[in-house]
Design a protein around this nucleic acid. Sequence first.
DNA 1: GCTTGACCTTCCCCTGACTGGAAGCTCCAT
DNA 2: ATGGAGCTTCCAGTCAGGGGAAGGTCAAGC
Lengths: 131, 131
Amino acid sequence: MNIGDVATRSGLPAKTIRYYEDIGLIKPHRSDNGYRCFAEADLHKLAFLGRARALGFTIEDCRMLMALYEDESRASGDVKQLALEHLSKIEAKITDLQAMRNTLTELVNCCAGDNRPECPILKDLSGQCSG
Amino acid sequence: MNIGDVATRSGLPAKTIRYYEDIGLIKPHRSDNGYRCFAEADLHKLAFLGRARALGFTIEDCRMLMALYEDESRASGDVKQLALEHLSKIEAKITDLQAMRNTLTELVNCCAGDNRPECPILKDLSGQCSG
DNA sequence: GCTTGACCTTCCCCTGACTGGAAGCTCCAT
DNA sequence: ATGGAGCTTCCAGTCAGGGGAAGGTCAAGC
């Protein structure tokens, strides 16, 4: 398979696939003409990577997950720990974003949003507490 | 005021303050020795920027918010629109992260996390649906 | 007056995970 | 032979700064 076919079948852009080769996540063979030549196993790895990335794992996490996946004597505890650490980062992000959302929602609700300059959003940002 | 004092009082790192000058968000004067020389108004702007950034606004958003803040004939509707657009991006991110969290939580709960290699997390990532 | 250390300056490279685009090669169909 | 699609590499850019080098400045202490 050439990269275009793999891109279509994996759902990843060709650019991303080249990048993954660059950083050593996959190692496709080369045809005589210099084109990358992907086997089914490469496609499978790319799909794995795509799913891990979609769950928000970093590239380095993905690298470790792939290594664990390929290590048949792995301990599932190592995978679980990786996932739990990632989960706690996600939860922290959610908490941060919810705090932003709450503040913003309140500010937006206080703002008339008309043609007048008076604006509680700007007032808050400028440090003049409106409460 | 020198940059160190402003950093302390605004809570922003000196690096960040220099960066904000670089991209034109602030324009502190210079002393004869070449040092940046900050007035209270600069400090005020930096505090504004810090709060806007803490609410997750992008730098470009901040630039517009500052312009609106300084425009006494602004319409609060413009500010509100900016805030609403930002809010909807935040909400989209929260939704994405919650989906990740839900999937990950389920996977983690299915994983024994012991010394055995059997692992539903890896199984899911590899595309073998466990359900 | 000299030194020391803290503070300031600019400059450039690095981050993560790609994306865009240029220049050039290959392949296939016409 | 030619045109266009697809492939290659390489360079630069994204966002919002962070790290650190090389060097100028200032105030205190001796």
